[in-house]
Design a protein around this nucleic acid. Structure first.
Lengths: 237, 237
DNA sequence: TCGTAGTTACGTACGGCGTACGTAGTGCGC
DNA sequence: GCGCACTACGTACGCCGTACGTAACTACGA
């Protein structure tokens, strides 16, 4: 009953197990895995304390022994999938290595479509986030630049990857649990957009839409974006 | 009672007023303004159908005459504040113009701290979003590049601005409605981070943190990021 | 001209949510 | 071996989005 007053804390600083009392039935990793499983299957909105507890096999309120607030559950989830990042021995070519990092991040987000939404809201540095950061910095050893600049490069790369994948997935993620298909939805939106642009009020936009009318190659767009970010940090130019 | 079945639609395609029936008590702009007022004052989570209806001065369910789903209310909000973008006659220097666009976007998001969270989820093209896009393209007239490239430039600029401001605001937005102060929170997090890094497991990270120990100049970081994005699209190098 | 169909307005109600709180049981540290 | 910190979890409260029913109202087709 004691210690229930709310105080600022970082979930990662709180020890998973203190001496006293019966030993917890699950580990923190179990909790995270259950939440990730639910989010993967039913989207982020399906992640409720009740659902996760049920998936775990315990009462709803027992979850609060592992996680003080729902937001911390989110942090656990992000850290858990961040651990899926494969880390390798840097090749010596920092651009190739960072390109590989970017592609891996993209795959991670496509595997866990709820990740971008959480990434933009969480600012903490979870254990696996630290591992990932350190790995990126290691890849950047060959680059002659200040630590600050390197951090800015990593930040920008993450920003671009996150937003690009976020846009890629926006439709799919939104359509989930809506009573019509994604195809219907996009058809309606394209019809509307076409009508708007056809009014002639947006000549340059109209030109852009007619110019590349075909289905755009998301892969290529992503690749170009990453290249441009990396080029921006390459020495000389 | 008829026409209540859910069908895909774009809120902007739905006419604000059809012939029949009594004239609505409020305009769509009124609804958007009320929601924006609430979000500005109490954060995005304070935006509930009940609150907005109360702010507007009508019953909760009357709101659904103006907005079929809550998500559409979000679209209304984004469009409303997008209208705050000041559009000017392009100067002929596309880099200067786009830099100005970026700064304006940043100010917009700092004025409406909930905007980044909505931006990453909404993929529609509202009227004011179209206006904004066309303006950016107009600024890019002097740049010799395909429409596709120009669109990619705009997308990347938006991505970087959104994520940077999002990170800037993450702490503040999170602390809202939590029972402790932002200072307490960051103090706890920094203490944890320092402890983690001091273990020696992350040598490069440690170096980065000790190297630029002072408070970082967010303004300068943002400026550098924008410059780098624009440089990446400039001809030759 | 007038009936009626399509609107607006809105109260009620349902199923879900996060989580405060109380209680019972458990096992380590003193 | 006592006590306390901990685990487990049921109940309950106040929110949320929104389906649905009803009543008042107005523009259009006959």
């Amino acid at each position: 009953m004691a210690g229930r007053t709310a105080r600022p804390e970082v979930i990662w600083a709180r020890p998973e197990r203190t001496g006293r009392g019966p030993k917890p039935a699950y580990t923190r990793a179990d909790v995270a895995a259950a939440a990730v499983r639910i989010a993967d299957a039913g989207g982020l909105d399906a992640v409720s304390m009740r659902h996760v507890a049920a998936e775990l096999g315990c009462g709803t309120m027992s979850l609060y022994n592992y996680v003080p607030r729902k937001e911390d559950l989110y942090e656990l989830m992000v850290d858990a999938v961040s651990g899926e990042h494969e880390l390798w021995e840097p090749s010596g070519d920092w651009r190739a290595d960072l390109r590989r990092v970017a592609h891996q991040s993209r795959e991670l987000m496509r595997r866990h479509t709820w990740l971008p939404r959480l990434m933009s809201g969480i600012y903490g540095f979870s254990p696996n986030a630290l591992r990932y950061l350190e790995h990126c910095l290691t890849c950047l050893d060959p680059l002659e630049a200040s630590s600050g600049t390197k951090m800015e490069l990593i930040a920008m790369l993450n920003a671009v990857v996150t937003m690009y994948v976020s846009n890629e997935l926006a439709t799919a993620e939104r359509t989930r649990s809506l009573p019509w298909s994604e195809a219907e939805e996009t058809a309606v939106r394209i019809a509307y957009l076409g009508g708007r642009v056809a009014t002639g009020a947006y000549p340059r936009l109209a030109a852009a839409f007619t110019e590349d009318a075909g289905p755009i190659d998301l892969e290529a767009v992503f690749e170009r974006a990453v290249t441009r970010v990396l080029d921006g940090f390459a020495p000389r130019g």
